[in-house]
Design a protein around this nucleic acid. Structure first.
Lengths: 339, 339
DNA sequence: TGATTGTATGTTATCGTTAATCCATCAAAA
DNA sequence: TTTTGATGGATTAACGATAACATACAATCA
């Protein structure tokens, strides 16, 4: 019996072929005759051989690992996407490595650094705002990558994201058509392009319905996030000078719903609520919520673009904008007393 | 300018030291004089050097990666723990690689295989039931590992888990003392040791309070999970021959609460509900829920045990059982009409 | 003064795998 | 017969970093 890990050399000794031939057999090199290949593969299996990926990657230059860099794992929206990516990548024999920046934006560069150091073949990146610098870091190191969920201004790179402008528009039109005239808009983090687009789309829709922009009370994203973190979102909801709430992501909506329940305010009887993201599509354990989102294809398409980019770095940059839909799960209705 | 990645050799050429000296400088070898080290490090930095971890790991035998193998990422409980692990590991300059088995139990072996192949330094493993085989696979390959959240019968390995027996007991005692006599117990996946322990602890507590075991209607875990997946948990709740619900994990509890709300049944007015896991500890965006859990230390301690094991494989196996507490967030009360 | 120690480096040999070449052998084609 | 071309494989040289050992030179000590 051998001490450490079994290597190609051990197999080579065992079955009489050279290391090279063993290597090729285990990689299913078609130039080897069936019989040799089977013999070697069987021997390897019976000896409990496990390929040393580090050596393999070092030599071949490919690691078969894709890294995804995310903000954190507390957002179910992200987790769903990660799951889907993992599935997509596994299909084509890649591993997904999740690198999490723990809400600390400055970790992004370090994580990209780590990914490059580890020799991943590509990076899926959920950029926050103002991260051109990091993106140039990937470009400078010839690292294939795809931007997800958000576009980054003035950066010409592969991107997949939802049509946030349309999303905001749909939300606004839906509520306006129901008869709502005054709104509370709970923003996401300021300056993210998703945020801006959704807000602008929303404004456009209500204006088209003859509602002035002043009828929207918008709470800055920082305030919302802070309130959420402190489990104290109720103060943001008063005075109740509106009949409908639009919130930037489902997590916030759930917190709001809970706060309203506690005050005895009914949804959608007293207040309508609509939000973004696609929690519900993947996670049936949450209460239904009227929401605007696209399906999981953002993960699927992101992976697809990345694989293509890895294959051919000279491809022109592509940008995929996924259409969104409104899914009415019953948290919106005509405003009170207006039926 | 150089084409591919910068290597030690490039730095060596640039600053006149040998590759070896450069390598040592970048690893902060104390035998090098300050001046040389600083010079080399500065040169490396200005050239944009990024260490090739594959080559480094291959030679040194250490990858500075720890893998964690999880069921899936839909359970917020897991995601919280992962976040915490990541943080702990980053402190000591390790990377966490999350390998997800997509609810497909048979993937476990493949993922362990992958982890070994990638040369991770250790594995954090959330075992499901009946997985001695996989554990032996790690042992057989001299891979340091720690079992989390669940014990595996007859396996003598480092383990960290919550005291599920006590958890079940606390739940039972709490409800019995409030005056509840008939219960609905929504189980987790059958045969998991957590499940068994919680149920047994629960039974023990109510028996001590003079309540017969028949007063507990237990729904098998498979049925619960299936209902959850189909977003149709309501049928399990009828007939309503009980006044309190105990559910195996918070996700289920939320689904149940939603279902009850929809039927106009109030919590805790009509029905009390109590559950396990520690969602709330990390995620304030969920409604409060009377729940039994320990803190995030399961991640912290798991990482600690693993690091120790990696350092000294000859250590005797250790088993840490974390105490649990009941956190009463107001979803339990005296049964209706009993006050 | 010669021996010894220590400091600051250079040399050389791997780690395990894969890529690039090269070399037999044998059969079919010219 | 010689040429050509598959077969089936062996040889050799990397990939980039690190470990073990060696060396040169100065400082220290008996």
């Amino acid at each position: 019996m051998k001490a450490g890990r079994i290597t190609l050399k051990d197999i080579s000794l065992e079955c009489g072929y050279t290391v090279n031939t063993v290597s090729r057999a285990l990689r299913n090199d078609p130039h080897l005759p069936e019989s040799t290949r089977v013999l070697i593969q069987d021997t390897a299996k019976s000896m409990g051989y496990i390929r040393n990926s580090m050596a393999s990657s070092l030599r071949s230059g490919r690691s078969h690992i894709v890294a995804v860099i995310v903000n954190d794992l507390h957002n179910q929206h992200f987790c769903d996407l990660l799951n889907q990516m993992d599935r997509e990548l596994r299909k084509v024999d890649y591993n997904l490595m999740i690198l999490c920046m723990q809400l600390d934006d400055s970790l992004a560069e370090e994580l990209i650094h780590t990914a490059i150091s580890l020799g991943v073949d590509g990076i899926l990146y959920f950029p926050n705002f103002g991260q051109r610098h990091y993106i140039e870091y990937m470009t400078g190191n010839n690292m294939p990558f795809v931007l997800l969920d958000r576009r980054v201004n003035d950066v010409d790179a592969d991107t997949v994201r939802c049509d946030d402008l349309q999303g905001g528009y749909l939300a606004g039109r839906h509520l306006a058509e129901l008869g709502h005239r005054r709104f509370l808009f709970l923003s996401g983090i300021e300056k993210s392009s998703s945020q801006m687009d959704r807000f602008n789309g929303f404004l456009q829709a209500i204006r088209e319905n003859g509602i002035p922009g002043e009828n929207v009370r918008a709470i800055p994203g920082e305030q919302v996030e802070e309130a959420l973190a402190q489990d104290n979102i109720a103060p943001l909801l008063f005075p109740m000078d509106y009949t409908a709430i639009v919130s930037f992501r489902d997590e916030v909506s759930y917190a709001v719903m809970t706060a309203l329940y506690e005050k005895g305010i009914s949804i959608p009887g007293d207040i309508s609520i609509i939000s973004f993201d696609n929690l519900r599509a993947e996670n049936p354990s949450r209460p239904a919520l009227t929401s605007i989102y696209t399906d999981r294809s953002i993960a699927e398409i992101g992976v697809k673009l990345l694989l293509e980019r890895m294959e051919d770095p000279s491809l022109p940059p592509r940008s995929v904008v996924l259409p969104v839909q409104i899914f009415d799960y019953g948290t919106t209705a005509v405003p009170k007393g207006a039926s």
